[in-house]
Deep mutational scan, measured.
Amino acid sequence: MLDDRARMEAAKKEKVEQILAEFQLQEEDLKKVMRRMQKEMDRGLRLETHEEASVKMLPTYVRSTPEGSEVGDFLSLDLGGTNFRVMLVKVGEGEEGQWSVKTKHQMYSIPEDAMTGTAEMLFDYISECISDFLDKHQMKHKKLPLGFTFSFPVRHEDIDKGILLNWTKGFKASGAEGNNVVGLLRDAIKRRGDFEMDVVAMVNDTVATMISCYYEDHQCEVGMIVGTGCNACYMEEMQNVELVEGDEGRMCVNTEWGAFGDSGELDEFLLEYDRLVDESSANPGQQLYEKLIGGKYMGELVRLVLLRLVDENLLFHGEASEQLRTRGAFETRFVSQVESDTGDRKQIYNILSTLGLRPSTTDCDIVRRACESVSTRAAHMCSAGLAGVINRMRESRSEDVMRITVGVDGSVYKLHPSFKERFHASVRRLTPSCEITFIESEEGSGRGAALVSAVACKKACMLGQ
């Protein structure tokens, strides 16, 4: 009897593995994704193909990295998701002549009506938060230079001027797309009239992360975010950046690689679950690469896999709870928690219980395998993109072996128990001629924006502006 049951459990697990095998990517698959990513990057950089390229390769006008001589107080704003952060950054000489960066910050959550109302409502709310922060720190009387981390696709015309191309991540505030974001912020500050600010720089969160990590390690020339969304930036040779005049030196390019796949480059790798996630998203047909990796989508992918296993009578005796059938019910943090389970399955059992399920031991094991399959594919897909960037940098610099540091931020990278190990191992397999160091950014977005502002202020002083 026991043997029969054991055989049935083994057969069930084997069927589960057959279904989950769809998520496995072979090294040849990853090399294919990497080569296609490089081709799209090239198209994004070139003037004649930029418009139709899915990977936009947006110039950021960040050319210099901090040298350690900029000092002063800077205000930093960070808008990239449902939370908005205001930070005071003091850049100065530390002990023994070292450079020191001290920060104080406060988080504000953005109400739904500000995210989806008008641009005026959104930026009025942001300036209200700045006003509140300055009151708390008794700094209303000071006109501070301000660095703005704005983590949406922007076409820069200068370091302090950028046109919002399109909202992502659930934002829909009308009247912002096609307009200068810094102008919208300046107008809102003017409307309030109770404080003055000098907006000197606007950067993407990947750029802010790279600059913040450069402060720790001067070989950091790539910034990457794996959180709600997924994106990367890197220092490109100016001669390859056709959208900006000049051939000397390097400029940081914001790849906006989340949109890779929007022209069909990933079609052969998309599964039924991916198509369902895409169809029910706020932007169907867009940001397809990001939807395979980002935390906004990972939990939902797992939920759809679990429903398939229920329908195949391989999980929960073929019956799903009402909660499990509800879109968004299986949160991405559950994926991390399930994979963090120590082996007694308590954590998995508790999560499934909150979803109205009474799982068996085998159910718990199957749910864990589903989570591992989805998150491992995410790590491997992400590795193909980064390997594409790094191999490109090595080739354009004609280096036999390139040493490089990548600064990384984002909740999936930082909080998932195995993502970074799987990701690092896969990147290294795909970049055999590179020695890569990964560092995690601390308060990256805010500190990085302030350091970019410090560079901009120093330049302005040198130019006598």
Rank of each mutant, 00 (worst) to 15 (best):
R36A: 02
G178I: 15
E395W: 10
F150W: 15
A450Y: 15
M8V: 15
M235E: 01
F316R: 03
S76A: 04
G227I: 00
R155L: 15
Y215V: 00
T376L: 10
E17V: 08
M139N: 03
T354W: 09
D365W: 07
F123I: 03
C461V: 15
M238D: 00
A379G: 07
L304T: 04
G72Q: 00
G444I: 13
V181P: 06
S151T: 09
M87A: 06
I348L: 05
G183R: 02
A232T: 06
M107I: 10
T228W: 02
K346E: 06
E399V: 05
V401I: 04
K39Q: 05
E96R: 09
M121K: 12
L75Q: 00
T149R: 14
D4V: 09
R7K: 14
E242P: 05
E70C: 06
S353L: 04
M298K: 05
S54V: 12
N240D: 02
L355C: 04
Q106G: 05
L88E: 02
R275Y: 12
L30S: 15
K39M: 07
D262V: 08
D278V: 06
L75N: 00
V55Y: 05
G117Y: 08
P153Y: 11
Q219F: 15
L184K: 05
A119I: 10
H218F: 05
K458N: 13
M238V: 01
M202W: 06
V367M: 02
G258C: 15
E112M: 04
R358E: 06
A259Q: 12
D135K: 06
R392N: 15
I225V: 03
C129G: 05
R403A: 09
M121C: 06
T168W: 13
S321Y: 13
G227T: 04
R155F: 14
R403S: 11
T342P: 03
I189C: 07
R308M: 03
V200K: 00
I130F: 06
T168F: 12
V222Y: 00
S441H: 05
H218S: 06
K459W: 06
T103Q: 10
G170P: 14
R345V: 09
M393K: 11
T342V: 03
M41G: 02
A53D: 02
T332M: 14
D409Y: 03
I225K: 01
G162H: 10
E67S: 09
F419G: 03
R191A: 07
K291S: 11
S396Y: 14
E120L: 14
G170Q: 15
E319Y: 15
F171D: 11
S212V: 07
G183H: 03
K414N: 12
L301M: 12
G175K: 05
C457S: 12
L430G: 03
A384K: 00
E93I: 11
I390D: 00
C382F: 05
A53T: 10
V427F: 08
V226H: 02
E300L: 01
S54M: 15
E14A: 15
S280I: 14
G258W: 07
G72H: 00
N166V: 09
L45C: 10
F438P: 02
K56E: 09
F419K: 02
M57K: 00
E268W: 06
G97N: 09
L58E: 06
H141G: 04
S353G: 07
V253L: 08
I211M: 04
S441F: 08
N391L: 14
P153I: 10
S453L: 14
V154E: 09
E93L: 14
G444S: 09
C220W: 00
A450S: 14
E14W: 15
N283T: 15
E51F: 12
V101T: 07
R303P: 00
A188R: 04
N180M: 15
E399S: 11
E17L: 14
M462A: 10
Q219W: 05
S280Q: 15
Q38F: 04
G410H: 10
L122Y: 14
G464C: 12
R36M: 06
Q286G: 10
S375K: 04
V335F: 06
C220V: 02
R36Q: 06
Q18E: 08
K140A: 06
T60Y: 00
L271K: 05
I126T: 11
D158V: 14
M107H: 12
E48D: 06
T65S: 10
A387G: 03
F148T: 07
R85A: 11
H105N: 09
C220E: 00
H50N: 09
G117E: 12
A188Y: 01
I159S: 12
K39P: 02
L79A: 06
E95H: 12
M121G: 10
I163L: 12
V310M: 07
S64V: 13
E248W: 05
R429T: 15
D198Y: 01
I159E: 14
V367C: 05
S398I: 06
G356C: 03
F269Q: 04
V199E: 05
Q18G: 12
H137E: 14
S418L: 11
S373E: 08
T209I: 06
L164T: 13
K346N: 07
D344L: 06
L270A: 03
V222F: 02
K32Q: 04
R377T: 00
K140Y: 03
S280R: 09
Y413M: 07
L79F: 13
L301Y: 12
F171A: 11
G261P: 04
A259S: 10
F438E: 02
E196C: 02
H156G: 13
A53Y: 02
E177L: 09
Y349L: 04
Q38R: 07
E93Y: 09
L134H: 05
M235L: 08
F23W: 11
I225Y: 02
R422S: 15
P111M: 07
H50V: 11
E272A: 04
A119W: 08
D344K: 01
R429I: 15
A53G: 07
R394G: 03
E14C: 10
I211L: 04
G246H: 01
M115L: 11
G97D: 04
T65W: 06
I211G: 00
S411A: 08
E157K: 14
D124I: 04
H317W: 12
K13Y: 10
F330S: 01
I366Q: 07
R43G: 01
E440F: 12
T116Y: 09
V33M: 05
F316T: 07
M121H: 15
G410C: 06
H137V: 09
S336N: 01
S109M: 13
Q138P: 12
S263Y: 09
K458E: 10
E268F: 03
P417E: 06
E96A: 11
K459F: 13
L185M: 03
A384Q: 04
L164V: 14
I211T: 03
Y61H: 02
S127F: 00
R429C: 12
T326G: 09
G261A: 09
T326F: 10
Y234H: 12
I293W: 13
G444T: 15
E300C: 10
V427W: 04
R155E: 12
L463I: 08
V154P: 11
E242H: 10
L77W: 05
